[in-house]
């Protein structure tokens, strides 16, 4: 049996596949890169060749310009490519639009790199598909038993209750520009909120990109309009940093909300001055992480980033060999 390290091994640049000569989500420019999804800490500009889903390539082009890489190769979900005997395919990860797990096969050995993923339903991307494998390489952003994300419908209902309770105020929901913002908008539509949703300028291009991929966001209006009073009772979606920014002064006595898995912990909400924390995450919570490992039952579990030690301990307690890779450069604080 081949050692898994000879197929994929951690390097400072990222996970490296020697027999196929490519990196997965490298943090610096490399010759060949397989990119799992479009968040900035996983998808960087300047690689020679980028292999990713069509959606992820479109997101990268939108963020970095059309010339973000020397060349690109789009893979449909499940469509394999083979080079030097190494087969690579991309399988839905359920994280954001275009997000994928990278399945790498070589000489009878299967290794799956999860990228960032979640298990619950997301109206903006296809659901995570478990792939049976020898080594499952998982993220662990929320790898502590305190992270148990509630049903997202319940969180949206809390937001709408607050909007009804404070009709004279506006609600600004901090949400990351890629994925979270569009998911929150879709969830609001599903919950029956049919009024225009006001959006910060930094979200506009990615919103259009999502719409071009068939995800209907309903009527969106720029949050730059005329008089202050216009925003009473309004829902505004903005990047999290905008909440503390001078930009937010145009709104009447705003309720600061933040859609993030970190909002599970009260001190985090308090630190950022959040009045209405919404626990809506694009990452797997503790129960999803452990259920996924349990379902896949890999020969070995490798953990890329996040709170590796707790998930590793859980795996060991359940008879699965685990190893923390401690990859650097993946910023679990910024995204989600």
């Amino acid at each position: 049996m081949i050692r898994p390290e000879s197929l994929l091994c951690p390097k400072p640049q990222g996970l490296y596949c020697a027999p196929g000569d490519f990196f997965i989500d490298p943090v610096v420019p490399v010759t060949r890169a397989v990119i799992t999804h479009g968040h900035a800490d996983h998808a960087r500009a300047g690689h020679g060749t980028v292999i990713a889903t069509r959606e992820t390539l479109a997101i990268m082009a939108e963020r970095y310009g059309e010339d973000f890489a020397g060349s690109t190769q789009a893979l449909a979900y499940g469509e394999p490519i083979v080079r030097d005997g190494v087969e690579v395919s991309l399988v839905p990860a359920g994280h954001v639009l275009g997000s994928a797990q990278a399945v790498v096969r070589w000489k009878g050995l299967t290794m799956v790199v999860s990228g960032d993923y979640k298990r619950r339903r997301d109206p903006t991307c296809p659901a995570f598909e478990p792939v049976s494998c020898d080594v499952f390489i998982s993220e662990a952003t929320f790898g502590l038993p305190v992270f148990r994300h509630p049903d997202d419908g319940q969180e949206i209902a809390r937001l709408l209750r607050s909007v009804a309770q404070f009709p004279e105020r506006s609600h600004i929901v901090g949400a990351y520009a890629l994925g979270k913002a569009q998911r929150v908008i879709r969830l609001l539509r599903e919950a029956g909120w049919d009024q225009p949703i006001h959006v910060h300028g930094a979200l506009e291009r990615l919103n259009q990109l999502y719409e071009a991929h068939g995800i209907e966001l309903g009527r969106l209006e720029p949050a730059t309009s005329t008089t202050r009073q216009d925003f009473a009772g309004a829902i505004v979606i903005a990047p999290p940093s905008a909440l503390a920014d001078r930009w937010s002064r145009r709104f009447p006595d705003p309720v600061a909300a933040f859609a993030s898995g970190w909002m599970q912990v009260r001190a985090r909400a308090r630190q950022r001055g959040i009045e209405l924390p919404l626990v809506i995450s694009d990452h797997a919570d503790w129960d999803e992480l452990t259920a996924t490992v349990d379902e896949i039952r890999p020969g070995e579990l490798w953990i890329t980033h996040g709170r590796e030690e707790a998930l590793a301990r859980w795996a060991e307690l359940h008879g699965i060999k685990a190893r923390a890779l401690a990859l650097v450069g993946y910023d679990d604080e910024a995204e989600d």
Binding site: L144, P145, V146, V265, A267, R307, E309, A310, R313
Partner: peptide, 10 residues
């Protein structure tokens, strides 16, 4: 142990 780590974090 997992509880202790959780408590330390929160």
């Amino acid at each position: 142990t997992l509880f202790r780590w959780s408590y330390d974090y929160v």
